[in-house]
Design a protein around this nucleic acid. Structure first.
Lengths: 145, 145
DNA sequence: TATTGTTATACTCTATAACTATA
DNA sequence: TATAGTTATAGAGTATAACAATA
């Protein structure tokens, strides 16, 4: 448990928040796939991890309201990246599944990300990279708390 | 220099991007000051760091287009948090300065952030905190690259 | 009565294009 | 002619409220 009385932690959170907001704005523009918004991309990433999910589950995971997820899923379906099927047990719910097209798109996108990655690599040293790798899961955890 | 041939780095960037986007959405909601958007907050933070700046400088630092910064600065001025003065050398430019009110607001906000901080502290161990502290400046650097 | 998902609508933030004024 | 900032306008993404279907 960290020392709460220290102002340094508050300063660190402050810096972190500012950096995350600025970087998210940056990422929004540097998106590798022109046709997909960051959240759509994130939903596909989540689906790739957990296989299938209901719209409600996705909304909770992405910290988005249900109506927003309805729209996002509809857009992904229109692009042929997910399939919507009836839920086996509960007829209110639906099951969202990744299509094969989404998989190949994710792979292509991963390939293209390496270009951006190469540019970054020129400006970060190994220690900085290590810091990012170590922080990624913690940021993920924060996002879910 | 990191090893570019390793797919692990691509996976790390992937995870990082996803986490940053999700967390930014989270922060947008958990904002400590209801009346201030994340970017407005970030501008005040920047001003607190560099003293004064022109709208153009702020736009570049925040990765926002000039018209957007015009609006943001106008909102901050309406809230009495910044002052707009003519540039001493160039009559096209303006100088944005923090007001005393902004300073006390930032202090109050810092105080309130500690509440959120305390909640976080209960769920992160010291190692995780260290990871975040180490990553914050790197994220900041990425945002500026 | 509670829950899942949808529809309709409005809001916030940002961008682009066109304009004004200084340099 | 180029630059700093502004105005006007449009678009993307998300939220809230009200609703339908099912549990």
């Amino acid at each position: 448990m960290p020392d709460l009385s220290v102002g340094d932690d508050a300063a660190a959170v402050n810096a972190l928040r500012s950096a995350v907001m600025r970087l998210s704005r940056r990422l929004k523009h540097q998106r590798v796939d022109e046709s997909l918004s960051p959240t759509e991309m994130s939903v596909l990433g989540t689906l790739a991890g957990c296989g299938t999910a209901t719209p409600g589950e996705l909304a909770r995971k992405e910290h988005v309201q249900p109506p927003s997820m309805t729209r996002i899923v509809a857009l992904l379906e229109a692009k042929g990246l997910v399939r919507l099927e009836p839920h086996p047990d509960d007829r209110r719910q639906k099951v969202v599944t990744q299509t094969e097209r989404a998989e190949s798109m994710l792979e292509e996108s991963r390939r293209r990300r390496n270009v951006w990655l190469t540019e970054l690599a020129a400006n970060l040293d190994e220690e900085e990279w290590a810091a990012l790798r170590a922080a990624a899961p913690v940021l993920e955890k924060l996002a879910h708390m």
